[in-house]
Design a binder for these strands. Structure first.
Lengths: 120, 120
DNA sequence: GTTGTATTCAACCAATGGGTTTAAGACCGT
DNA sequence: ACGGTCTTAAACCCATTGGTTGAATACAAC
């Protein structure tokens, strides 16, 4: 569920152009035309990119006559940071635990445990 | 340069299976076979996933006879968090600034500025 | 209503991605 | 040397993606 959301967010940010657009939107809202201007790709291509960003929830759009100003939804960042932090912390904890084990083994070098995984 | 790195990292994490593998590796190193076991895809598919994760710098591998234990490289997370935090902060700052402007406009409702972007 | 601007839709194309199967490589045990 | 295990390589399939061009929509201005 929220899994799919994460997939879309990461996939959206996997494209340099799209990350660039996000960077641009971080400084201020902009229309499709304004966003397309710096790049040498067609406006349609940028429009597609924005659709991807919108589907990922990274960007929202309002209406101003025929213009569609794009706005960066910074809330999604929390989703990512939460995911990242979780596993970063887990990995670091494991590292710490492993170090402790190694220290203990230096103090009392007795049993040799085989296997690659760290069981629960 | 480091741009391509970010692309590969985000692309790697855009796949649920690959995120799952990362989650699994966060609790402890594991071999390809061990990692493949829970899924109903072929071992070769998982091997490919691991290659992607390795190319992204998220996973490193050592040798233990014919086995190739996979290890999560938690350092890459910093790269992501750095990128995310940068734009999150920028967006939030802008939000704060915009709020300030709106407040000021309520105090003295005079000039009506047109345009969608918030110039520096 | 016609012209002009901003944006999207539709059809298409080349490239990539995730999956498969079959075969090969690397290593241990006997 | 031979069979068994773990892993990757190669060739292929089908769906997705990023890009194109050309037409359609939505709106403002005249």
């Amino acid at each position: 569920m929220t899994d799919d959301r994460l997939s879309r967010v990461f996939a959206a940010l996997a494209d340099p152009t799209r990350r660039d657009i996000v960077a641009r939107l971080a400084v201020g809202d902009a229309t499709v035309g304004e966003l397309a201007e710096p790049y040498d790709v067609s406006v349609q291509a940028v429009s597609k990119h924005l659709r991807v960003l919108e589907d990922a929830g990274l960007v929202s759009r309002s209406r101003d006559a025929q213009r569609r100003p794009c706005h960066l939804e910074s809330g999604v960042f929390d989703l990512m940071t939460k995911w990242i932090e979780r596993y970063r912390r887990e990995a670091e904890d494991r590292h710490r635990r492993l170090d402790a084990v190694l220290e203990q083994m230096e103090e009392a070098p007795e049993t040799e445990s085989r296997g690659s995984g760290a069981a629960s």
